[in-house]
Write a protein that binds this DNA or RNA. Structure first.
Lengths: 151, 151
DNA sequence: CTATATTAGTTTAAGCTTAAAGTAAATATT
DNA sequence: AATATTTACTTTAAGCTTAAACTAATATAG
């Protein structure tokens, strides 16, 4: 029986599609709730979470590295957050090219609210797994994080 | 010890972030290879895969339902595929609003090439898991597919 | 038959995303 | 000091995505 692929190519495809679907479904739920219940988006939430994690603020470049997105992308999201008064830009006094972005007071308050809801949603969604199961899931996913970086 | 959340809220968050990251990493690899090696995108691939699966063709609305994206979205992707001669639109003779989209001969040839590469990439990425492990992963992901639909 | 409602699909506005080009300031070289 | 390079960031062009508005055709109701 000639078979140029590994014996379980089909199984691999099925698992990948399941992984993609599960992750996408959960992400869609989060996006939907952020929008409907909070009037915001996942990218905005991610930027605010990064800034909340760095109370001293971040440079635009640091922010884009932390979030692993392009710097042009960060420019747009920060622009919109700034328009809404949720983040503040401070010009660097040493380097006139640079600026530090941080949450405004109202942005901080708003994020605390968002983070609480977000944690509850995740907790709810992950409820079906007991501790042992989620450990197993972590370990299996961990194995997929290694190879795909190479080649 | 007062704790208003379930005991493993933090663990739940960690697992979700791991799931999101793993899925996103793999998706990024696929996007990158589709672009660099094939000059195409994941949305285009998805549309072509759907059409390959339905040799008789699909209506625009059927396509958007099958892929679970908005109909306006499908319009744009099919437009670009049509510009490249990879799909063909056929006006429905019964209903002047409707049309059937299917892969062109060159689109079919092209997709066979893409699908082969795609399967090899997935096979490669999923290699670290043996059959038992991927069964376990499937089962765990399956549990997360149930609840999140509700509420 | 006419008015209404539904259906198929496109267009538009807004945001997300990237790569590539551009701007301006700081640093390094000669 | 003048030139070149690097760095920080923005802008642009293109594509993906959605919801909402829109167009046109079909189906339904009276």
């Amino acid at each position: 029986m000639h078979n140029h692929y590994a014996a379980n190519t089909r199984q691999h495809l099925r698992v990948w599609l399941k992984l993609l679907k599960t992750s996408g479904n959960i992400e869609a739920v989060l996006r939907e709730r952020l929008k409907r219940e909070c009037g915001t988006t996942l990218p905005r939430f991610d930027v605010m979470a990064a800034l909340d994690h760095h109370p001293a603020g971040l440079r635009m470049t640091e922010l884009s590295e932390f979030l692993m997105v392009s710097n042009g992308n960060v420019t747009g999201i920060v622009n919109r957050l700034a328009e809404d008064g949720l983040v503040e830009r401070t010009q660097d006094s040493q380097d006139r090219r640079a600026q530090t972005v941080c949450l405004s007071p109202s942005g901080h308050t708003e994020f605390q609210h968002l983070a609480k809801l977000h944690a509850q949603w995740i907790d709810d969604i992950m409820q079906p797994l007991n501790v042992e199961q989620s450990d197993t899931l972590m370990a299996l996913l961990e194995q997929l994080t290694e190879l795909e970086v190479s080649s």
